[in-house]
Amino acid sequence: MKPGPPAWRTFRPYRRLCQMSVVVAFIVIPFLNMRDITFFSGNLLSFSAGGFSVMDPLAALQVIATSGDVNLELACGAGFVLALAFVLGRVFCSWLCPYGFFSELVHKFRRRPASAITAGPGSGAVFLRVFPALAGVLCVAALAPSPWLNQLSMPGWYTRFAQHAVFFGVFLPGTLLLPAALALECALQKRLWCRYLCPQAVLPALCACLKDGARVAFRPKKCTCGKGDRPCRKACSLGLDPRRQTLAQRFECTSCGDCVDACRRVGSGALRIGQRPTRVTPES
């Protein structure tokens, strides 16, 4: 096996750094707020940095549906997140989401590969999850007076947990959903919540498959691996095959870059993150 590229040329360390900064930042921010430093405030449902606010698109959609009214700050905040998904793919899920980080950790330290549910990764069935999420928004608008789907936001719970512990010294019982979901993933299927259940991921995922921004791109000509030997596929924490380039694949892929790292380690460099070639002609 060829020596891989040096660590600083791979995505993994930077990604871990990003994830860990988010995990730490949302513990630190409430403490800063308590000392009247309010440049950063909020949680991962709605966050503001120096007056610029960023918002969970699903939360924004629910607010629009329940209140029947859009305001500029909300539209910009949610639009920013969707634009990010549009340009870079679902990077929030793999680079920023604290739950994604914990979920990856759980499976890193877990030996037995879990896959009881075998809805094939990258199959069109994953689109089915769009419907519960949108139906949820409609239900919320019609029945509940409040954006209830936020109660299913794992990054939301993680960041709210810290806020409430620091501000008011209370423990929110909903925080228990975090270990519960992790346990469920452990028992049933690798990355279960992120892949099939998380309603917050649906809108960014749809954006990620709308059009080709920077995504994982595969150049078949450069690939040196045989059919059976697929380091990229083994590296993917979501169980996707990065060499297959389907719409469903783009919907699921979180652009974490693990497959690209694995490919570089083999030395072929057939996978990269960049603009996908628009058409692959058979002779090229």
Binding site: S41, G42, N43, S46, A60, V63, P147, G156, R160, F167
Partner: peptide, 8 residues
Amino acid sequence: ARCVSCGQ
């Protein structure tokens, strides 16, 4: 209807 519990 509007509050998203961000706590800001």
